Amino acid sequence: CHSECLGNCSQPDDPTKCVACRNFYLDGRCVETCPPPYYHFQDWRCVNFSFCQDLHHKCKNSRRQGCHQYVIHNNKCIPECPSGYTMNSSNLLCTPCLGPCPKVCHLLEGEKTIDSVTSAQELRGCTVINGSLIINIRGGNNLAAELEANLGLIEEISGYLKIRRSYALVSLSFFRKLRLIRGETLEIGNYSFYALDNQNLRQLWDWSKHNLTITQGKLFFHYNPKLCLSEIHKMEEVSGTKGRQERNDIALKTNGDQASCENELLKFSYIRTSFDKILLRWEPYWPPDFRDLLGFMLFYKEAPYQNVTEFDGQDACGSNSWTVVDIDPPLRSNDPKSQNHPGWLMRGLKPWTQYAIFVKTLVTFSDERRTYGAKSDIIYVQTDATNPSVPLDPISVSNSSSQIILKWKPPSDPNGNITHYLVFWERQAEDSELFELDYCLKGLKLPSRTWSPPFESEDSQKHNQSEYEDSAGECCSCPKTDSQILKELEESSFRKTFEDYLHNVVFVPRKT
């Protein structure tokens, strides 16, 4: 048989008469490798580009789960590009990614509803959504962080984005990388972005840091009482949809009607710091009717980097990364020049730590249904340095008659930039024990000054392991946590139920 035959053949030295091919099969003959313009397919066939392209389009058009959109890589027609490569849609070739590779997620039936953290986790790592997304989240724990972890990498949506009755959302900033909504599939009414009845939605994105392009379709905003109209108009300008909307697409009466839409800028007039305090004062603000001013709200939190936005980490279910302080308005003076500047002394802060701070007014709604208010920009203030805590785990070892090696770990709280350490030492008198000992005694162990690591005695271990207080009263049991108490109650309830079950099964009433 021919060298490319495997198993047997019907005619000697003829690659077209093989029972099976050793390498690849091409047009009725066995070959060692697939010549151009053919590609290896499933490690035994040679196919042309049209064959591989037909497989790709067949799966793409069917949208069946589990099928493969075949691509070409290293002269092979394979189910998908290997790690580190992405497909070129024009020629199906796998090309190296520039940075992290995109991950295209194809949605069944063309859309997916995100109504819980669990459903959001199914899209973790996706960068391109081939379909439409509907966000409908009523509640949950730590929602802002969970949504950002699972949806934060999405850069492109081919269909539309719909935010509907998501009472738990305060902001859409968890879509931190969303840059493009194509609108290839539109919501009824030709809408590519749809926001309806979101009672706590206050911000779409921080438009000073976020760009969003909507290729096709219109915007729809109705019944978002805490979303200011200025935020919607800003989205029109940034996304390129200005002029597409009709009169009733953006409701003037049901958007922002319960919001404090600040239209003035508060400026800080005085800032002073110490290692654990920050004193702030800002310019006074009074609405047209000074009785509408209820006070100020001061927001602050630790910020290692200057990239904080107002609604980071917030949701309507209680999660809030900001510390909020309510401040009463100052006494009002008739003389504008003698107006008191409101302020606040922030206490209990960490030394040498940068804080993000902003302040906003708290006002009631005027009778004319106009909203007044003022808010400052987010500023960054760093507390002063102070003395560091003591170095940890000092170790001293003498390696000769004239040297001592000293080692330690950095302090747990540096409280500033540590530039150097101060080492103090003092000579001590020799131990009298060394002169009084009889060095001729056998088995004498000389006193040693070398360091030995501390260890816990058996008594201390027994005390720590004991669940009861000892007789001397030195140790006591740790208080039980809520989960331990709940577990004990469940076990007790189970024992009672099981005992009742045994009584009912074992003891049967005697027939009379």
Rank of each mutant, 00 (worst) to 15 (best):
D257K: 11
E237R: 13
C126F: 01
T309F: 12
V308H: 01
W205P: 01
E231R: 06
Y300M: 10
P410R: 12
I379K: 10
I114H: 01
F193H: 01
T185H: 13
S400T: 07
L266E: 00
L212E: 00
T361N: 08
P394R: 04
F299I: 13
T383Q: 00
P284T: 03
M346Q: 05
F268G: 00
S208Q: 13
K234V: 12
S319V: 12
W205R: 02
K103V: 06
V104L: 05
W352A: 14
S389A: 15
D393P: 04
G110V: 02
N263F: 11
A251E: 11
N340Q: 10
Q121V: 08
I214P: 00
T127H: 08
Q245R: 04
Q339K: 03
I250L: 05
R182S: 13
T241L: 11
V238F: 03
I214W: 05
H233V: 07
G348E: 11
N320Y: 15
L227C: 09
K226G: 06
C317E: 04
I181H: 00
N340D: 14
P391L: 09
L252C: 13
F193R: 00
A145I: 04
I378N: 01
E283S: 09
A303L: 05
S260P: 12
A168G: 00
P288E: 11
N211V: 08
N334T: 12
L280C: 15
K162R: 06
Y194W: 11
L123E: 01
F299A: 12
L178Q: 00
T113P: 13
T213A: 09
I129S: 01
A259L: 11
H341P: 11
N142L: 05
S269W: 03
T273Y: 14
Y372Q: 03
K177P: 01
Q216F: 12
Y372A: 02
L252H: 08
G373I: 12
V324R: 12
F193P: 00
N340H: 12
D384F: 01
N307G: 03
Q121Y: 01
N136M: 05
G313W: 15
Y300I: 07
T273E: 04
K277Y: 09
K277W: 11
K277N: 13
L133D: 00
L279M: 02
E237D: 08
V397F: 14
W344S: 12
N190E: 07
L265T: 04
N141L: 10
D115Y: 04
G295Y: 12
K209Y: 13
I327A: 07
G373E: 04
L212C: 03
K301V: 03
S260R: 11
K242D: 08
K409V: 12
N334G: 05
P288R: 06
C126W: 00
I250H: 15
G313M: 13
P284E: 15
R244C: 08
R179Y: 10
Q314L: 12
T361F: 15
A168I: 12
R247V: 05
N150P: 10
N307I: 14
T309L: 08
Q403H: 07
R138V: 05
A168Y: 13
L133F: 07
T215Q: 07
I134D: 00
S260K: 05
T371L: 11
H341I: 05
L196C: 05
I357N: 00
G217C: 07
R138E: 09
W408H: 00
D115K: 14
R369T: 04
V390G: 02
L266Q: 03
Q245V: 15
N211C: 08
R281A: 09
V128Y: 04
T113V: 14
G295T: 04
E122F: 06
Y300Q: 15
S338E: 08
K407G: 04
K209D: 02
P288S: 08
G131I: 00
S269H: 15
N263C: 07
T118R: 10
V324C: 07
A195Y: 00
T254M: 14
L107V: 09
N248V: 06
L331F: 09
K226A: 08
H233K: 13
W282L: 09
K409H: 09
C105Q: 00
R332Q: 04
G189Q: 01
P388S: 07
R244H: 14
G125V: 07
S389I: 00
E283G: 01
I135M: 04
N130Y: 03
S396K: 13
C228M: 03
H106Y: 07
T213F: 10
K253R: 05
G373W: 15
L180R: 06
Y160A: 01
M235K: 00
G313C: 04
W344I: 12
A356T: 05
L151F: 09
N248Y: 05
E122G: 13
Q121C: 10
M346P: 00
T215M: 06
A145E: 08
P329Y: 06
R176V: 10
I114T: 01
C126K: 01
F221G: 05
V104W: 11
Y160L: 07
I135Y: 01
N200Y: 05
L201R: 01
W286C: 13
Q121A: 04
I379P: 00
T213M: 11
A144W: 04
Q203K: 07
S402M: 09
G240T: 13
I154M: 12
S158N: 05
L252R: 10
L178R: 00
Y191S: 15
R347C: 07
T383L: 01
W286V: 11
T353I: 15
E155V: 14
S132H: 02
A149N: 10
D249R: 07
L252V: 12
L392K: 15
